[in-house]
Nucleic acid binder design. Sequence first.
DNA 1: AAGGCGGGGGA
DNA 2: TCCCCAGCCTT
Length: 355
Amino acid sequence: MKDTTTFSIPVLFNVHSFQTDLISWYLSIKRDLPWRLNQDPYRVWVSEIMLQQTQVDTVIPYFNQFMNRFPTTYDLANAEEQDVLKSWEGLGYYSRARNLHAAVKEVVASYDGEVPHEKDKLKKLKGIGPYTLGAILSIAFNQPEPAVDGNVMRVMSRVFHIEEDIAKPRTKKIFEDVVREVISHDDPSSFNQGLMELGALICTPQKPKCDQCPVQEHCLAYEYGNQTDLPIKSKKKKQKQTDFYGLIIQNKHGELLIQKRPSEGLLANLWEFPLMPKSELPIEEWFKQHYGADLSVNAKRGQVRHVFSHVIWNIELVFAQVEGEEIDYGQFVTADQLKEYPFPNVQYKMMDEIL
DNA sequence: AAGGCGGGGGA
DNA sequence: TCCCCAGCCTT
């Protein structure tokens, strides 16, 4: 069997020197981040999930708060999902929180609350993909496994002058093979974290600081002078827009109508003010159909625009009063009770408009 | 392989 | 604006 995508490390590449330069640099400059306090696998795990597609500075306060609230696997496993989501509120990609919660329950049920160090067991846990698997194995258990993220693909594409499109799924395998060939077996943790730290601080997407780079002498792209052309990445298409009415509805007691979103899809299991897709239908008629109650619209006032990774919402705020006490869907809460529920940021934008 | 899935920061 | 970020899951 033949694999045409295999990549070979150049004969003249000094693997040991590369490892030493990278690791000694990392150990000398590494940032004092909260998840580097110790090697507790649970802490490493939580941090790696939070760091998916999310920058370090954003994660720090969430991590501290989360570990304070759920210090051990047992604490998290015994928590209600709504409380976990409340801790995740505003961080985004909420399936990460739901998957982590489910996976930690599995760890408590099957492994006595101890995060397994076996690759096959770890990989089966919800939310642990190829990257997080390698990150936990190397950082918490010191195993020489690749942890290839965006940073690593950028750094390695430059060091080895690899021109494959990093937006393609199969390209990641090439970089995993590369890392397997050059990773340090003495200190895989520092090696992997060093690659990521390098990508975050020196080998940045724009204007890489090559003059400060600890592995400059190993870098083919630097030698060729085209480091800013790498990595190659195809563009993704832009988001579609959707228009909604955001319904701010009060009952006669001044309470607000909120509802829980479906258990799947965008912002699953979070809460919201009712959103009505804009159509030809009058608001009152649409509301009667879906909620079985009569509405009197007071005013349309305020506009909220929210950009997700794949869609854009344009929301026109509508203030209304509902008649009667009964409603088929959702529930009325006081302004004070609002903060007990997990809301996505787009809903906080709407609340800001209300004030 | 492609697309869904958040939110923030930098240029 | 656009791109990027310590990616994973479903189809």
